[in-house]
Design a protein around this nucleic acid. Sequence first.
DNA 1: TCCTGATTTCAAGAATTACTGAAATTACAT
DNA 2: ATGTAATTTCAGTAATTCTTGAAATCAGGA
Lengths: 195, 195
Amino acid sequence: MNLSSIQQEFVLHFGEMGSRWGINRTVGQIYAVLFLSNVPLNADQIVEKLGFSRSNVSMGLKELQAWSLVRMKHLPDDRRDYFTTPEDLWEIVRILVAERKKREIDPTLSKLRELEMQKPDSDADRHAHDLLSELRELIELLTGWYDDMNRLETERLKQLLSLGAKIQKLAGKADILSMVGRRKATDKITAGKGT
Amino acid sequence: MNLSSIQQEFVLHFGEMGSRWGINRTVGQIYAVLFLSNVPLNADQIVEKLGFSRSNVSMGLKELQAWSLVRMKHLPDDRRDYFTTPEDLWEIVRILVAERKKREIDPTLSKLRELEMQKPDSDADRHAHDLLSELRELIELLTGWYDDMNRLETERLKQLLSLGAKIQKLAGKADILSMVGRRKATDKITAGKGT
DNA sequence: TCCTGATTTCAAGAATTACTGAAATTACAT
DNA sequence: ATGTAATTTCAGTAATTCTTGAAATCAGGA
């Protein structure tokens, strides 16, 4: 059970890229193999395909589970653990974004809020304090927007994304409307649509 | 010239976070120091604040320049290089996103396109091939959207972001209307019938 | 319970990445 | 050109992260 040249190359590439993301080469390759496989694989099959030690694969799978990037399955009459990636690519994207936010953004947001509690005592400190507030607000705007987007179902999300900047023309309009009153604005817009 | 406790804590935190991003702790701390400072700093001042070796700071600054995250400045009657971060936070965000895209997304997109040229020979290979196409399309949708957003001026961008999911109601409408014709679409926002 | 296969943990070695001081280079003033 | 301050390079060392095989743990089946 070996990899075709296309698969091989993708797996290698994904391993390299893995190290630019938070995960290491091994974990990246394991993920790629699972991603490409149309059937769930157990740890020994991954060992066979990639040539890593059994324990290395075990640790890699553990890390992927910590990222919620793989699911464990069981086959009838087989005690071994099998693994797959979510079938839906968008689900994978959502997970990735959520996990990276959790690891790379949220801790900083907490820290900024915490630091804002302390009051500045010097002049340079006041400047720093202001910067941190500004940064916090910016991050809150971004994460708030992300939360909104993440609530949308995938088809809606795709619509929005493909609209791209064209949406911006609408935004100007919506901006005007929202000055008249939020209720009115949304009512008018959704009038014929029913939610 | 030393750091207040707030600044100290932020610098340390940023260093820790740095390692979750592609940069290491030292580079993260150097960046944080520059970010907080209201005046440009030279390498020796950074050494003084952080206690790293001069050469380490030099390398860190080099890396930050490779990321376009710091700008070099010169002061009158002073031969030393001074460094600052962009004053505008949004500019920093734009740079960060652009650089991460360049390093983390673009190479994969190229690789996927390249692999799609090769034609699959086995069955499992055909499945893999399809997956890669799907993945490429998804990434293209995302990066296309990003390019659009990145073209917007900051104030527009902020507007859009704060609208959040409310924009989605417009999107459904715009989708329909755009079939009729772009000009009409924006004109008739509040009038048309929905899905 | 004991046995067997599967998985995980762990400590040690391997590999990679980061950091440093010394030497080399650069850039400018005299 | 020469001298000096500033910066960069580089090779060696330190620190961290990765990988492994052996031992420990776990989970059913007889």
